[in-house]
């Protein structure tokens, strides 16, 4: 057990001494603080007063130029995760540290466990600190304390962010185990990320338009088209992530994003755009959250198994 802690502490120290971490932290802070600045500019126009979740709006309101905090964070989390994981094992192997460390009286998994835990911890520190920083600034500026439910929602939000980041970190860590060169492992991870974030939407759109052409389409066909596109996008963890955080942080109406069918079929004139309770919000996105957590665990488990079976040869 102590060996995991030792590796963990050493890895944490590495993070907090490395330039890449400080640059990432700075980036996240700059993005977060500029987004809260923008949301504070617009929060009063967006506050209807009735809906009540004013505090959450700090995170969800975007300005004319700058996007909202949740948009920023959905962009940054995969980058942070990839950067934290891509060289976890192969750089140690190449530098010759791995075999030296492995010859110490520790279990082999201490290394990967310690690294993994240190990554999660650092990720959590980044995400939690910026969220709390925004909360503090918000509290100071708008003077509205969050309700207990809002606090819970924010904690769930942080929790999901951490798991989402863990998924990306485990994925890039997996590549760092499989691939010998750090350049290959980071490029592979980034390629996957770009595919999911940029190309998948294009592909989904193209497929949907082929199956149900939008030209002269009836309303029902338009809905069908959207549903097809949406279901393809669901294969991407980034879609699952944005669905779950939007539903959590936009209690009134956020869940329409994930149920386009119901949105289209419901008689909107009779529908009130009232906020869902926390339990209802969670139930809406429970599958998404579970899939994100499962993906993170699967990626880590695969990394773990491959690492444990791998030869330690120095060359």
């Amino acid at each position: 057990m102590r060996s995991i802690l030792t590796v963990y502490r050493k890895e944490l120290t590495d993070y907090f001494s490395s330039k890449k971490f400080i640059i990432l932290l700075g980036l996240v802070y700059v993005a977060g603080l500029s987004s809260v600045y923008v949301s504070l500019q617009n929060i009063r126009d967006a506050t209807s007063g009735l809906d009540g979740f004013i505090f959450l709006k700090l995170f969800t309101i975007s300005g004319d130029i700058l996007p909202s905090f949740i948009t920023f964070i959905s962009l940054f989390i995969p980058i942070i995760g990839i950067i934290f994981g891509f060289d976890a094992i192969n750089s140690e192997r190449r530098s010759g540290n791995l075999s030296r460390v492995m010859s110490q009286p520790i279990f082999r998994d201490s290394i990967i466990n310690g690294k993994f835990l240190a990554g999660i911890t650092t990720l959590s520190i980044i995400i939690a600190s910026i969220v709390f920083l925004i909360s503090g600034i918000g509290l100071r500026s708008i003077g509205v304390p969050p309700s207990a439910e809002e606090i819970l929602r924010i904690f769930f939000f942080i929790f999901i962010c951490i798991f989402y980041g863990t998924f990306w970190m485990s994925l890039s860590m997996l590549f760092s185990i499989i691939m010998e060169k750090t350049a290959t492992s980071i490029l592979t991870s980034i390629a996957i990320w770009l595919f999911l974030v940029i190309f998948l939407p294009i592909i989904a759109n193209a497929i949907a338009n082929t199956v149900v052409p939008l030209e002269n389409a009836s309303a029902a066909d338009q809905v069908k088209n959207y549903v097809i596109e949406h279901n393809i996008l669901r294969s991407s963890p980034s879609t699952l992530f944005s669905e779950s955080i939007t539903t959590l942080l936009v209690p009134a109406g956020g869940h329409f994003l994930i149920n386009p069918q119901s949105f289209a079929s419901a008689d909107l004139s009779k529908m009130l755009l009232s906020p869902l309770s926390l339990g209802q919000s969670l139930i809406q996105v429970w599958p998404q959250i579970i899939v994100i957590i499962a993906l993170a665990i699967i990626c880590f488990a695969v990394s773990y198994v491959i690492f444990m079976r791998q030869e330690i040869r120095a060359t």
Binding site: S129, F132, L133, S135, G136, I137, G138, L139, R140, S141, I142, G143, V144, P145
Partner: peptide
């Protein structure tokens, strides 16, 4: 005005972070 208490709590959170 921000109720002073929340202003201070806000500053407190910022400082703690």
């Amino acid at each position: 005005l921000t109720p002073t208490i929340w202003g201070w709590v806000g500053i407190g959170i910022i400082v703690i972070v």
